[in-house]
Amino acid sequence: MSWEMIRKSLREGAVVFLACGTGLFAFCVFRVWIVGRLDSARFKQIIDLLPKDWDRFASVDFSWLVSYLGRVVMTFDEPMVLLLLSLWGIVRGSDVVSGELGRGTMELLLAQPVPRRAVFWSPVIVALAGSCLLALVIWLAMWVGVQITSIKEMVYPTINLPNGTRLPLTFLQPREELVRMRDVIDPRIFWPGIVNSVCLGVFFVGFTSWLSALDRYRWRTLGVVFSIYFVMAVFKIGGMAAESLRWMLYLTVFSLYEPELHIRILEGGRESLWTIVRWNSKFEMYELGPLGSNLLLLLLAAVFLLLAHCAFERRDIEAPV
């Protein structure tokens, strides 16, 4: 792999990375801060008013989602976060082959003593590294958000027992107190969500690179990928909305993106995170575990990247128009 090629890809992706990174950081900090502005108890009252079957739209129970942790974790599911994270993978992935071809810069690159695989993998590696870094930006932003936010909690008066424990007096009127969010939420618990985000970003790099390797116009690659992206988003919503449409969940990659579920599972026990398939009591397979979802995303990305590599190695490079 040529360091010059890597540097070129870094230079070309820098502006998009900074834009996506800044957007993600600002949004995630703000999103966590907003959580602190709304009391969980009041939030629960709103949730209680929703029809019972609305819980099908969440992979975790509503009672957990309305907690401070649950609402902070929902940051991962915000369309803005999802879009910015995918945007990087799609924008950079589309540039790998059809971007260079469309700009007419591919032939001068390939005329140099650089193997085609280096021309292909250099931007792919930068795009993959960028996806990892953007997921880390999300985590960093959420960490900052948690550090700077205070939350209001209803606290019962307590008495100190001789053994040192504090006993809440629940028969008395609770009073409102400001508590630092970092005392309630440990940001380290977000890591399964970050890993899941990395895997989704990596998938979009692989998928878009494959379409880019088959195409010669970047605008067309982008159009096709975004169409598929929105169709998959509709499939996810449709699949969750009705039991009869559940098959749609098998056709969308967003079924594998469940950061809130993975974090909820971590809360229940670290070892459950390493499950590939989650079984019910009758041992009939019913869904992928956190490790299974992440591995499938990475596997799909690897397959698409391999297909893209083969397509690029074998294709003719047309003259620039």
């Binding site: 070129k8 032939e107 001068l108 390939l110 005329a111």
Partner: peptide
């Protein structure tokens, strides 16, 4: 490609 240097017609470079 180690033995050849190429000048394309209507060359395009990284902007």
């Amino acid at each position: 490609h180690r033995h050849v240097s190429y000048l394309p017609s209507s060359p395009r470079f990284f902007r």
